[in-house]
């Protein structure tokens, strides 16, 4: 196991190098002279020269890349052009917000998805199963910014309905913006988690159905094991193997989804940071954020692989 983890970590090195090259070249892929772009249109030649000098743009490309990587490894991602603060400080202030958002959403998605998927699978082809799968299809197809706006409308602002309508009148229970308190967290987490919940539910259903039909489940039943134990102990443990992979991929997807969700709910996380920075052409921040997000993604994948291996003893063969 330990050997596997070490090998898996070593395998991320080429990925890291690839990511850093991509992020580094973002600067140079922008049409025109980066210094010109940074300085803005109509800036005096002198200022452009200054920027060029400051950013080391006069050095040959490999040197520039090496400098970039060296400082990045030391935690120096450059300086924001908007605020003048260190990029790492800018990201550090918002990093945990996004991670929290993604983790809560994942927890919600896993919780809802597993339960819905298991119920669906154990009652296949019944009305309950059909209903759950239709709801899941909706959850899957709904763009999350739209869902976010709807949730704000219904549960943060509240809507006026005729007074005989129960429950849905004056449902302004949650806060529409910001991050921190419970009331602020609920809506963004639902917004971000719904799509994943739907995917996990569908995955759980098909994976459970596969497993429930297998010979060893029949063996368990023939042993006299209670049906709940057959499902939650014997079947689920096997069904989880593909689900873990999906959850991992979803978590990565949530980081991307966070960009929209954070904008809709004005959550001050990395997603919003990246949007704001793009709008302000704050390249160092965009670069830094993409780099950190990529690292996070790689880390999650690493964790998933380890978890997968832990669940599936068979891969341990070599």
């Amino acid at each position: 196991m330990i050997q596997f983890i070490i090998r898996r970590i070593l395998q991320t090195i080429p990925v890291l190098i690839g990511v850093s090259i991509l992020v580094f070249s973002m600067m140079h892929l922008v049409p025109g002279d980066p210094a010109q772009v940074i300085a803005g249109e109509g800036a005096p030649q002198e200022q452009i020269e200054n920027i060029r000098e400051r950013l080391g743009l006069n050095d040959p490309l490999p040197t520039q890349y090496l400098n970039y990587v060296t400082s990045a490894v030391q935690g120096d991602l450059g300086t924001s052009m908007r605020s003048g603060r260190d990029v790492s400080a800018e990201i550090g202030a918002r990093f945990w917000v996004t991670v929290e958002l993604a983790i809560y959403s994942t927890i919600l998605a896993v919780f809802l998805g597993l339960i819905a998927g298991i119920i669906s699978a154990t009652r296949k082809y019944t009305a309950i199963d059909t209903t759950i799968m239709i709801v899941a299809l909706f959850g899957l197809s709904m763009p999350n910014f739209w869902l976010g706006l709807m949730l704000i409308q219904w549960f943060a602002i509240g809507i006026d309905l005729p007074s005989w309508v129960p429950f849905f009148n004056n449902t302004a229970w949650f806060s529409p913006s910001g991050w921190g308190s419970f009331s602020q967290i609920v809506l963004p987490v639902i917004t971000l988690g719904t799509g994943s919940a739907a995917i996990i539910a569908r995955m759980t259903r098909s994976s459970m159905l596969d497993v429930i039909g297998s010979d060893y489940i029949r063996t368990a039943r023939a042993k006299g094991v209670k049906e709940q134990i057959v499902i939650y102990r014997h079947a689920l443990k096997n069904a989880l193997i593909p689900i873990v992979t999906v959850v991992g991929l979803q978590f990565g997807g949530l980081l991307g989804g966070a960009v929209l969700t954070e904008s809709v709910f004005a959550v001050n996380g990395m997603g919003k940071l990246i949007i704001d920075s793009i709008q302000a052409r704050d390249f160092p921040v965009v670069q830094g954020t993409v780099l950190v997000a990529s690292l996070l993604f790689i880390l999650v994948n690493l964790i998933v692989d380890v978890a997968y291996r832990f669940l599936n003893k068979r891969i341990d063969l070599d």
Binding site: D215, T219, K223, N238
Partner: peptide, 24 residues
């Protein structure tokens, strides 16, 4: 029936490769 299965009446199956739970 559950008290009878695996206790008074047991069963073995054709496929030993798939009849045991791989995760236990």
């Amino acid at each position: 029936m559950r008290k009878i299965r695996g206790n008074e009446i047991s069963m073995i199956f054709q496929e030993p490769m798939t009849s045991l739970n791989p995760t236990f």
